[in-house]
Design a protein around this nucleic acid. Structure first.
Lengths: 287, 287
DNA sequence: TTGCTCCTCACGTCACGTGAGGTGGC
DNA sequence: TTGCTCCTCACGTCACGTGAGGTGGC
């Protein structure tokens, strides 16, 4: 017969836990000294305690363990309990996997944002855009509809997203309520579904400029980049791209003064625009 | 400005939760009516509430969220918190995967036990044993050492175990304190490690008998099977196998009267034993 | 007056752990 | 006497949810 301390060492359950299990009616001492209140456990109690311990190690709630102790005395009786419990564990796993995937998305996105921030010059540049696979939602309406569209794409293609989101502008002039644009995210793989079109967006030569500050000040940067293009007589193509290198975060809206947006205008490298076109006439292109 | 009920509908946080967050200093109403105690929230509070909600959806504890709200206002400041939190989520995932794997082991083992129980005849049978891959620990000592040995194999090869555990008896007579035996578990794959030998155990023709009841009564069944072999002059080979179809479970010790053990004695199907051998002399085998 | 919203306060959940203050046996 | 083990009782953890009992405004 063992004192509670010895029984604790034998079973690996703490003294506090043993007292708690008694209170909960899970494990009664063999004998309690009426004088001192000391608990004593006989050797047969060891197996009982270990059964509880093993079930707790499987994360079964004490209430279920109590029921099991009342109704089962063979592994076969446990089967139903364990199978049901397994589905619950599986559900928790799914939850945590979901959380981890959200965390990963936020973390990798943030790391990309920081990389983009570091290597930012704020001058017009010419560079080559590679082709990329994108998931996109075409919208005719207000620009404010792009936020939810990005969210829908993010939810659908989650971990396959591999770069910052951007808008394609199809309009040849500024439009407020019936703009024609497309919310896009580069993805590694995926198939079209419902409203979302998955396709390859061709690359090409482009003129780009990074804009730091809120979106409603993008006009100033458009003025700079468009005059650059006009001076060189480049044949600009639609759609124009606005890449949101840093915008509102997935948690914080962030400070719009810190937003970073890259305007990209693809042009036909084999063509220039005649002087006449600069006065508003249209060109068919040409060497 | 919104009442707590409206604010609850807007943010998706319950009224109780909003009151609780106020008490915890996470989210103060814009204004509290001194007369009625009614809480009122301005529109700017919506974004604040949603930040808390998004962080809670990542399962961050409220204390951390409070710290984040005090010290961060941009996604970049979150990075460290989220990375640390990710490792904690990963740890929880590992825990639950471990639990699931234990559950799976117990469940599949139990299902096998039940299958074995159903198709049990308790007569001597002849059958062919297939070769199998086993993980084994050879022991010279007491039989009571086999329990921990099985546990060690189980811990090491976990999910690759594909059948009931068994003992190989190498002794030609009964031994108490210095028995020579090997604790084995059939596995799908694995490599030898330390004390555990992984190898293919050859099959062959065998005589088998299922024994129901405690192990210390196995002698009775040995008597039956050995006299069967003697009658037919089969050339029995060592080691003899004891397959524990149902023994003490992983949770409950179970009732020894319900234990089910199959004795398997492999014999050389191309040989018989001369009558002289039955009186104790050794045979070299022969057609 | 009825229904609705809002309030506070106390308690429950889950499986223990912490700590104060004290007792009994060697 | 000292040290050790044991006891009880109350409270804390975590993020809320439940429910009782009551008030204020339309």
């Amino acid at each position: 017969v063992f004192s509670i301390g010895d029984f604790s060492k034998i079973t690996g359950l703490t003294v506090k836990t043993l007292r708690f299990y008694q209170e909960q009616g899970l494990l009664q001492p063999s004998w309690v000294d009426a004088q001192t209140g000391y608990r004593y456990f006989a050797a047969e109690k060891i197996e009982e305690a270990l059964v509880i311990k093993r079930l707790r190690e499987l994360d079964l709630p004490l209430a279920q363990i109590a029921e099991i102790l009342r109704t089962c005395d063979d592994e076969a009786d446990l089967l139903g309990y364990l199978q049901r419990h397994r589905t619950e564990i599986e559900a928790k796993l799914a939850q945590f996997r979901q959380i981890r995937s959200s965390l990963d998305q936020i973390i990798t996105h943030q790391l990309e944002v920081q990389r983009a921030m570091q290597q930012s010059t704020f001058q017009v540049e010419e560079k080559h855009l590679p082709a990329m696979l994108i998931a996109a939602i075409r919208i005719k309406g207000k620009y404010s509809e792009s936020g939810p569209a990005f969210a829908r794409i993010g939810r659908k293609y989650g971990r396959h997203i591999c770069g910052p989101c951007f808008l394609l502008h199809y309009d040849h002039e500024y439009r407020e309520d019936d703009a024609d644009f497309e919310a896009c995210m580069p993805i590694r793989k995926g198939a079209s579904a419902e409203e979302i079109s998955v396709r390859e967006l061709p690359g090409g030569a482009c003129v780009s400029l990074r804009h730091r500050g809120p979106w409603d000040e993008l006009g100033r940067s458009y003025a700079v980049i468009l005059s650059y293009i006009a001076q060189r007589r480049y044949a600009a193509q639609t759609p124009t791209r606005e890449v949101y290198l840093k915008g509102p975060g997935m948690i914080f809206r962030g400070n719009p003064k810190k937003y970073l947006t890259e305007i990209q205008i693809v042009f036909d490298a084999a063509a220039t625009v005649a002087a006449a076109d600069l006065r508003g006439e249209r060109s068919a292109g040409g060497a």
